[in-house]
Amino acid sequence: MTQYSEKVMDHFMNPRNVGEIENADGEGTVGNPSCGDIMKMYIKVEKDVIVEARFKTFGCGAAIATSSMATEMIKGRTIDEAMELTNEAVTEALGGLPKVKRHCSVLAEQALQSALDDYFKKKGLPSPIILKPEEEVHDH
């Protein structure tokens, strides 16, 4: 079980921003139990800035750690900035992930995209986000 970096283990053992946001401005769920991970992400937005981000994840250590890191990275960012967040950036911030666990970081990116898409829709705005189909999120 030493396949994870210290940062990953820290975010797994002490995950940041676990929970739900009632009446969230955006929420998104990706994954399914057959793949072994489900991520649910919630955002609260004030004046175009993400003031709160929370998550709930069913998944392995990498899934929980990437959810935690992704929510940390978008807090205080504008919607435009959050839209730019990539799975590579989340992975890098965690000090890397084992190759077999990279799909977990893709899932975190997709959960965020899904929450942002929901945000635009709730505001009645055209969503600039193109959600990838599930198969691409999880290529196994």
Binding site: F12, M13, G36, D37, G59, C60, G61, I64
Partner: peptide, 12 residues
């Protein structure tokens, strides 16, 4: 409701 590897990580 939970995933096995996470449990193993904690036990580890």
């Amino acid at each position: 409701y939970i995933e096995g590897e996470s449990i193993l990580l904690f036990l580890g």
